[in-house]
Amino acid sequence: MMLDFRRWIQSIATVLSNAWLLFPFTGTIYQGKLKSLCVPGLNCYSCPAAVGACPMGALQTMFASVRPSFRAGNFHIGLYVIGTLGVIGSLAGRMPCGWLCPFGFMQELVNKIPSPKIDIPSFLSCFKYAVLAIFIVALPIFAVDIFGYGENAFCKYICPAGTLQAGIPMSFLQPRLRDLWGGLFMVKMAILLFLILSMVFIRRPFCRTLCPLGAIYSLFNRVSVFKMVHHPDRCVRCGECYRNCPMGVRFYEGANQNNCIRCLQCMRKSCKYGAIGHSLSAAPSKDTMPSGGASL
């Protein structure tokens, strides 16, 4: 079954992204050459087991050091990271969120805990674009210190993956780091705990409202090589796609909505009428255009 297959892929991606299992012996993070590669999902590179670079962390540090970089004549403006994200997005849109992101995987697992499920207003989905614009772009570039360095504002003030994957384990791996626990760490812990609690009741709350990486990928959903296709002539709008969607997307409102993570669960598991399909490198013909306006 496709659903089981996706769980396998998510598990493998999570393990491959965090495959440095020698960290208890080295006492620090992996420092090999693989760290120059950006992983497709949100996975903190200060996690002691991480073997790749988090694209959001890498993008922020490139933006944060753009002025000193220019002064040194290097002209590093983040093209490598932007190009990596753009190539992935152009090919698959937000599909990495549904198949490869370890933090997204964790949210789906936590949401399996039996509890009443609630939905969130759709306007909250817009916040992730504000997070992207302010915390990933504006603050690292413009809020600089006297040396011209900005700060990784998203990592520092928001990122729950950093707290979970790096802050907590590294504090136990290197006990002296606990001396640095202060107000900021407590705020980040509160954000993490609030989000974990939210995950029990809400489907992928972080992905839908805060994730800047998802925000970037979502911009490609309508123009990527891989596209979802809706067959309105077969759709009865029964809402089964919405009930089983890990992102709470009503597929019949638009085939390539920004919140669709292309997990294909609706196509494989939910829709009994064959109203959901996908295509590669093809524009939907007129009879398969989305039936309604897309929403965030």
Binding site: K35, Y80, I82, S90, A166, L180, F185
Partner: peptide
């Protein structure tokens, strides 16, 4: 985006990303 990726690689940004990614990021941990 393939062009941007190649341009970034040619500009030496792979090394720049690696240099930052191998350092423990205190701000990431709060």
């Amino acid at each position: 985006f393939t062009f941007l990726l190649v341009a970034g690689i040619n500009a030496g940004e792979v090394q720049a990303v690696w240099k930052k990614a191998i350092k423990v990021c205190l701000s990431c941990m709060g």
